[in-house]
Structure formats: structure tokens, C-alpha cells
């Protein structure tokens, strides 16, 4: 996923460099305050970055004779917090670009955007969002780490594919499905490694985790928790909607697994003729809002509404589960 020089157009590189520099400046400002009180964090940040670098060298098999490697953005966020994770990924990427020719100098901003900001900050946001709706404790914590690790790898690779396509280096219909499919598998390895690392750390000293599940469960303030949950759900919703609107118009032209099989086997016409009535009257036939003429905008809109509906449904479901579990704990 480390993009070399010459792949990304100048305007995209400039824009992502501006985003990266501002995010890094803010992160450095936050860390400067933090390390002023706790100067022992300076070498800890550095050794964690060295750890992420070294762990990226440990390949794991993904089947078919190929292997993937660890990214470490969400793991770093779980260990050290979101802003520290951004700085750790930045350190790793700068050293890889400068000394190992892994990732280009002009593409450094883009690589930091993909792996540090989307992978690290976005992954941390997802992790907190997922944890907010899961039961407090070690299992919920590990689940959130696993899901966020998996998603962070996919999001970073999807953004990478979009950037390559926008720079006219490789067409989106090929780059996006290929990148996302490969990284959906690599992401499983990432999730397994992230969980194993976090488990090892909990077993040794849970105190060194940035926000460890043990302290969360002992100091449980409900109102604070509710407010935080609200913020996290809002942020997650914004992220999901952005992705749905921005990515679905590109992705939808490529048939999904079932549609592809249906087309190949010729049962799509059969299904269409049998269920024509219900198909046309479903809310979003083939995920596009019928009344809107432009295909891309229409698909984007369908993505927006669809994501919103899924979110509301999920929210209601979780509320129901929460109520039941709180009743049980009171009894």
C-alpha cells in the first residue's frame, strides 16, 4: 500500500500533503503537552514506532502462496492513543520512504493520509464507536480492536485505489475491487495480530494500554459515557455516510458477487421476470433513487439513505439489547 513517486498526480499529492501536515502539527502540539508532563513517553513513542516497523516485516500467509503484512495503525492507536498513532505511523512512513525507498517522497503526504489519518485516526474513531455499543469488558474491547483493524486496512486500501484512479494511473473498476478484495483478506490477518498484541499487553500490564478495559469498567460514569457515545455515533455516521456517498457511485457499476454469478448463470433474467413487480416497487431498485436522473448522484443518494436506514436499525437493535442486559444486571 506504500505508493511510490510518480503514481499520484500533483494536485492530489499537494492536497493530501496539506491535510497531513495540518493533522501532524496538531498531533505534535498535543503530544508536546503530554510529553512535558510525562517525558518517558518520548522514547516509548520511538520504540513503538520501531516495533510497528519491525512487526511489518513479519509476513503471514493469505493463501495461494502469497503473503500479507501487518499495518499496525489501529494497534498503535489501542496502545498509545489516536494522535500518538498518527505520529507513530508518520515516523514509520518517513523512515521507510527516506531509508528504504518504500513509498515515495512526493507521495509521502498521500501515504500518511491513507495509513496514518484514515488508518490510525479513522481506525481509532471506529474502534471507539464499536466499543461504545458493545458490552464493557475484555471481550468487547478485543472485538472492537479486531473490527476496527480489519476496517482500517480496507478503508486505507480503498482510498489508495481511489487516489490511483483519480490520478489516472489505474482504472477504478479494476483498482478498487482488486485492492479491497485483497485487503479484506489481509485485514483478517491484521485483526488477528492486533488482538494477539493487545491480549499480550493486557496479560502483562493492562495499565500500559491507552484506554484499557479494566479502568473503563471500574470508573463507569454514565452521563459522561452517554455524551461520549453520542459524539462517537455521530462521527461514525458521518464517516459511513461519506463513504457511502463517495464510493458507491464508483463501486456499483461493478456487479457484486451474487449479481455476477446470476449474470453468468443466466438466472438474472429469470429472477427479473418473476419478481418484476416487487423489484420495481422496492425502495431502491439496484441501489439507485429512481427519481434522480444522473446515475452517479442517484446511486450516491441511495447510498446515503441506505446507510442512514442501516444505522437507525442498528441503533434500535442495540438499544433493545442494552435495555435487556441492564435489566438483567439490575436483577
Amino acid at each position: 500500500m506504500h505508493i511510490p513517486d510518480g503514481f499520484i498526480s500533483g494536485s492530489i499529492n499537494t492536497a493530501s500533503a496539506v491535510i497531513a501536515v495540518s493533522a501532524i502539527s496538531y498531533a505534535l502540539w498535543k503530544l508536546k503537552k503530554e510529553t512535558y508532563d510525562q517525558p518517558h513517553k518520548v522514547p516509548l513513542l520511538a520504540t513503538t514506532a520501531a516495533f510497528v516497523f519491525a512487526a511489518q516485516m513479519l509476513n503471514f500467509p493469505i493463501g495461494g502462496g502469497t503473503s500479507g503484512h501487518f499495518l499496525g495503525a489501529v494497534t498503535a492507536a489501542a496502545l498509545m492513543g489516536p494522535w500518538a498513532a498518527l505520529i507513530i505511523m508518520t515516523l514509520v512512513l518517513i523512515i521507510q520512504a527516506l531509508f528504504f525507498a518504500d513509498g515515495g517522497i512526493t507521495a509521502l503526504g498521500t501515504n500518511i493520509l491513507n495509513m496514518g489519518i484514515v488508518g490510525g485516526l479513522g481506525g481509532c474513531m471506529l474502534m471507539r464507536g464499536i466499543r461504545a455499543v458493545l458490552p464493557v469488558g475484555k471481550l468487547g474491547y478485543l472485538t472492537s480492536v479486531a473490527l476496527a483493524s480489519w476496517a482500517s486496512v480496507i478503508l486505507a486500501s480503498a482510498l489508495c485505489a481511489v487516489e490511483l484512479a483519480a490520478s489516472q494511473t489505474s482504472p477504478l473498476q479494476i483498482a478498487l475491487p482488486a485492492m479491497v478484495a485483497t485487503h479484506a483478506v489481509i485485514g483478517i490477518g491484521e485483526a488477528l495480530i492486533a488482538c494477539a498484541v493487545v491480549t499480550a499487553v493486557i496479560a502483562a500490564h493492562s495499565v500500559i494500554l491507552y484506554d484499557c478495559p479494566v479502568t473503563v469498567s471500574t470508573h463507569h460514569s454514565h452521563s459522561h459515557d452517554l455524551k461520549r457515545t453520542g459524539i462517537v455515533i455521530g462521527a461514525g455516521m458521518v464517516l459511513a455516510l461519506t463513504l457511502a456517498v463517495l464510493i458507491s457511485p464508483f463501486a456499483s457499476s461493478y456487479p457484486d458477487g451474487l449479481e455476477k454469478v446470476a449474470e453468468d448463470k443466466g438466472f438474472i433474467e429469470q429472477a427479473a421476470s418473476e419478481e418484476q413487480v416487487s423489484w420495481q416497487h422496492s425502495l431502491f431498485p439496484d441501489y439507485a433513487v429512481g427519481a434522480v436522473e444522473h446515475e452517479g448522484i442517484s446511486t450516491g443518494l441511495a447510498g446515503f439513505v441506505g446507510t442512514g436506514l442501516v444505522f437507525v436499525a442498528g441503533f434500535i437493535l442495540i438499544k433493545l439489547v442494552q435495555r435487556r442486559s441492564s435489566v438483567r444486571s439490575e436483577a
Binding site: P61, G63, L192, V197, T199, A200, V201
Partner: peptide
């Protein structure tokens, strides 16, 4: 096969500690 990535994860956990 992929689930053996857990072993890499344990190595990485030791490495982090």
C-alpha cells in the same frame, strides 16, 4: 493458512512488550 497469523500476532505481542 491465514488463521496462523495469530502466531505472528503472539510474536508481535512479545516484540511490543
Amino acid at each position: 493458512w491465514l488463521p496462523q497469523a495469530v502466531i505472528v500476532g503472539r510474536l508481535a505481542g512479545t516484540l511490543f512488550l
